[in-house]
Design a binder for these strands. Structure first.
Lengths: 230, 230
DNA sequence: TTGCAATTCAAACAGTTGTATGAAACTATC
DNA sequence: GATAGTTTCATACAACTGTTTGAATTGCAA
């Protein structure tokens, strides 16, 4: 069908333009010009501008969520149903950070689009993000299995802070580079992931006795950086 | 002058409407209707819509920055020119968190406006935020004095994460409450500040030997919560 | 009171936006 | 090759936006 060509041309052009210039000042006319299609094609294929944006965002975030859950599942299988806390946090923040940062991703339209979506927060995207709670609950459940002694509130705060650090790093990437005058290496994504995870683990395990801590979080797997390695 | 009455009526109405409904769907006509003034008054008194928004935001964030610097100065004076790291972080995140969260602030227009400004990120506000770097450098300098052994990059990351946690808590307050089903107490602002500070301190002092750690951060002042207290 | 400046006002302007329309072009099936 | 269904197209629409204009009004000083 020729219809698919138009549809995907619109999607590609829209993602590119939104990534470059933000949602605020990209109009449907900009998009159809970039895609070399007719203005009416957007409403024909997507119904409305908001539904176009929603489709773009859903596609990308479904991919991230899938990646997250796969990593979580793998970690739990390896741990016999009880994944180490740092592996859980890795599964949570790794895909997002790897998707949005890193030198090779500099030219990636998808990555820059997701950064925009994280910064600007336009209505159709906000609506989708609000449904993300169920997804996060799966990580809370895994954390509960991993740290059975902790209060639930502590787990929520730990997950909250992990997301805070990763999202804020994506969102304020430029400012951190400017502030630190290049001393913070924003290209070494693995190091950033490890850093976020290790701080989150500290937040989650603070106040536990070392003995208990050791029993709950037996050993750092996959050679990930932990507090002792810093 | 009657001109001041109009000016401040516009400011008050704008802040209220932006706080309630966001920048996205509040027009100048909404504002002048709420303020009971003529449409042209906005451009007469402020020049443009963006300058109105900028004035609102500058006023509020200048107040926060003043509060921050006062707290920092006080902490450094008390420490003889070298403030304890947790006092520095308190000075950094305390004013923002106290300004935007808390039960008594629920009805505060200013607080809700600043939350909006944190969530939506509209051009005039973004421009102002980008000039905030100089302000943050003062905190980096204080942190360098407080933790003379640490790499600068570590200090930048620590400050970055502290801001990440406080801003994300403000921004995602509702979602955290929904996710945790009320188990995270978003009304106890002091506890939140302490929590953010203590995690930031852990991030900044991780990897240091306990001996060194103790010498650098001698004692928890003002009865603030530290890691051991959690 | 007179005069002058500052302020307010109703009205219009100029531009942009997302969406709808109905005819035209295309595609595939019979 | 006629037909039915899908897709494209140029164009118009209707609404809304921030801003400007020029006259009316107000407040204050001389």
């Amino acid at each position: 069908m020729s219809s698919d060509r138009t549809r995907s041309a619109i999607l590609a052009a829209a993602e590119r333009l939104y990534a470059d210039r933000g949602f605020g000042d990209v109009t449907l006319r900009d998009i159809v010009a970039e895609a070399n299609v007719n203005l009416a094609a957007v409403n024909y294929h997507f119904g409305s501008k908001d539904e176009l944006i929603a489709e773009l965002f859903v596609t990308r975030s479904l991919a991230t969520n899938r990646e997250r859950l796969n990593a979580l599942k793998l970690a739990e299988e390896q741990g016999g149903g009880r994944a180490p806390i740092d592996a859980i946090l890795h599964a949570l923040v790794g895909p997002t950070l790897r998707g949005c940062l890193g030198p090779d991703r500099e030219g990636s339209t998808a990555a820059r689009f997701m950064i925009r979506a994280s910064i600007e927060s336009v209505p159709p995207i906000r609506r989708i993000k609000n449904r993300e709670v169920d997804h996060l609950r799966k990580f809370i459940a895994a954390m509960r299995r991993s740290l059975p002694g902790r209060d639930d509130a502590e787990l929520y705060w730990g997950l909250h802070f992990a997301l805070a650090m990763s999202h804020h790093t994506i969102r304020e990437k430029e400012r951190l580079m400017k502030l630190s005058e290049g001393q913070c290496d924003l290209n070494d994504v693995d190091a950033i992931v490890d850093r976020v995870v290790s701080v989150s683990v500290m937040a989650l395990t603070a106040g536990q006795t070392p003995a208990r801590k050791a029993s709950v979080r037996p050993a750092p797997p996959h050679g990930r950086l932990t507090r002792q390695d810093l």
